[in-house]
Design a protein around this nucleic acid. Structure first.
Lengths: 344, 344
DNA sequence: TTGAAAGCGTTACCAA
DNA sequence: TTGGTAACGCTTTCAA
């Protein structure tokens, strides 16, 4: 970092203590209760207009901001919905889903907070989340066990929702079974007459949650057909792809499900550079239906993935919070369908 | 969403109240103070081993989890570092930077929280953040004014750091001037002999913070050279790119800075489909140095962007928190250099 | 080694 | 219409 000469230190704000509602009350010449009434527009109590004005003015003068912790301590509950911040960079698909969710929850007057649980794992992380006493917890991926769910519920969470491959006892589940993604691709490749199918499995850590089920899905699709499935570990690097392409003929594959569109692009480029014709010699199928697939030549066939709408999930959360008695819901939310273009 | 039949409602957990340290004390047959000592490993006080065991056991039996709000209320401070959650989907570059930052802050024992300020703007958002009494606030982009900084500081934030195009009075600044990105591209294109340069400006909302300075950077680079700069609004859609490519010859451009690698890919594909030779007829330069640029043919020239290391920023935050008296630091942190490949 | 009590900032109940 | 007071869960000082 390049240091730029600093401004002169401004006349120190005297490290003056943070103003509280008591300070506002004192300045306005009223009680703390009155301050609370005025600032929260409590309808059960009528406060005279001059008093209101004095309170508001005092609050503004002092730069008073209420203390959320104190408030929720007193109230006994908060409207915080907590999600762990994703550790691995996450694609545009998930980003969009998440910001939709965040908007929808915001409209329902919840506050969404992503908690950076760097290094914490599983039920250990659950404890850290529980300390914040969120009203609901949304957990993508696997890693949260029934223990963790229990901890969260016992500490007041009225809804725990997992977004992942399997149900967890006690939690609502949005099942996102990536097996389906691989399965669609497998069915498609088989229908296109491919008999020896490779499946790219990224070597980057953190992607196993997706890549394993996708691989299994292909296997399942090809199970009865007599076609073979070959696992292809691949790092997201040009050289790795080139090495894989170099031994392609020896592998004898006539089709490949490349995990997603980005790996597909990487592999397809390497194959073409190695003189393998796509789709004639080898069909390539990606997943995620990103824009880039449409820009490749040949245009990339891909598995379009349908995530649940953020609004639906927000409503599930809201429902669960209002009626914590109801049993946990389970929804299958991952839609997968092949978009057939020119690479297969 | 497809509803799956729910399990039978489990014997309701009786909506039993959340266990407090008082409950633990009662069960262990000690006072609340002792519980606190044991669970926090307070070194100033020696507690007998049998007592410790009883307390730990009671805590585990009850599933006791301390209440973060109560704790920080009592302590008068927290170790929460707050960032607004990005509203627009953010690329892999920023994702990596952020998760590095999060890890580094975690190692310094801070808790990183991304706050979903859906809909809130500027100083209004600052108030919402201030309610959480974070010890530090990191704000990417513009939008936070001196007012907002003041609100945050008065409510106890010991460090406010902006990551954006300009300094804000009272806050530490990590200046990320995207003008530099455009400038590098402009200098490069001029050096390659291009005289009529187009600059793609995405139509997607939320990207102006980056696209405007990048455009200005190109203008600045080309200012003295007699070369022209043409603004090219472009939506991230194939049709929009095709329309732009269709009138390319009429625009008479011999070079284009395409905002970033993804827009560059979009535009380059459209140009090639329209029979415009890249780089012979028109040079194309992207930005971000993503993998995909290396996979295109011709390989995409791009502006490699260097973000500060998450560790450096974490240390800045830590320093600022420990010594809030020191004046705000300003650092230029955005490095930009052209990676020349085959498209220019 | 342990316990009693005060206090952090809020809000809600009950009196005045 | 307003104010006093208690309570939320926790930590820490002081006393025993």
């Amino acid at each position: 970092m390049v240091q730029i000469p600093n401004q002169p230190v401004p006349p120190s704000p005297a490290q003056r203590p943070v103003p509280t509602s008591a300070d506002v009350a004192r300045l306005a010449g009223v009680s703390r209760a009155t301050v609370s009434y005025v600032l929260n527009n409590t309808s059960a109590v009528r406060i005279s207009e001059p008093t209101r004005r004095r309170v508001h003015e005092a609050a503004k003068d002092l730069g008073y901001v209420p203390h959320a912790a104190a408030r929720s301590l007193r109230a006994g509950h908060s409207r915080m919905v907590l999600m762990p911040a994703p550790a691995v960079p996450v694609g545009p698909l998930y980003s969009r889903f998440f910001s939709e969710l965040q908007g929808a929850l915001g409209r329902l007057d919840y506050t969404v907070v992503q908690y950076g649980s760097a290094g914490l794992h599983g039920d250990e992380a659950a404890r850290a989340w529980a300390e914040l006493r969120p009203v609901a917890v949304l957990v993508p991926g696997s890693g949260l066990g029934p223990q963790g769910v229990a901890v969260l519920k016992r500490s007041g969470a009225r809804a725990v929702v997992t977004l992942g491959p399997e149900r967890v006892e006690g939690a609502h589940a949005l099942l996102m079974d990536h097996d389906r993604v691989g399965h669609s691709a497998g069915v498609h490749l088989a229908a296109r007459g491919r008999r020896r199918v490779g499946v790219v499995v990224p070597e980057e850590p953190g992607l196993e949650i997706f890549s394993r089920p996708r691989l299994e899905g292909v296997r399942r699709a090809l199970g009865g057909t007599g076609a073979t499935t070959t696992e292809l570990p691949l790092a997201y690097e040009e050289e790795a792809a080139a090495r894989l392409a170099a031994r392609w003929r020896e592998l004898g594959l006539d089709g490949v499900f490349a995990y997603n569109d980005e790996y597909a692009m990487l592999l397809m480029r390497a194959l073409q550079d190695a003189g393998i014709a796509v789709p004639e010699e080898t069909a390539v199928v990606g997943a995620d239906d990103l824009m880039l697939g449409r820009l490749l030549r040949p245009r990339l066939s891909t598995v379009h993935i349908e995530l649940p709408s953020g609004r639906d999930l927000a409503e599930l959360v809201d429902r669960a919070v209002r009626e914590p008695g109801a049993g946990p819901e389970t929804h299958e939310v991952l839609g997968a369908r092949v978009v057939h273009r020119d690479s297969s």
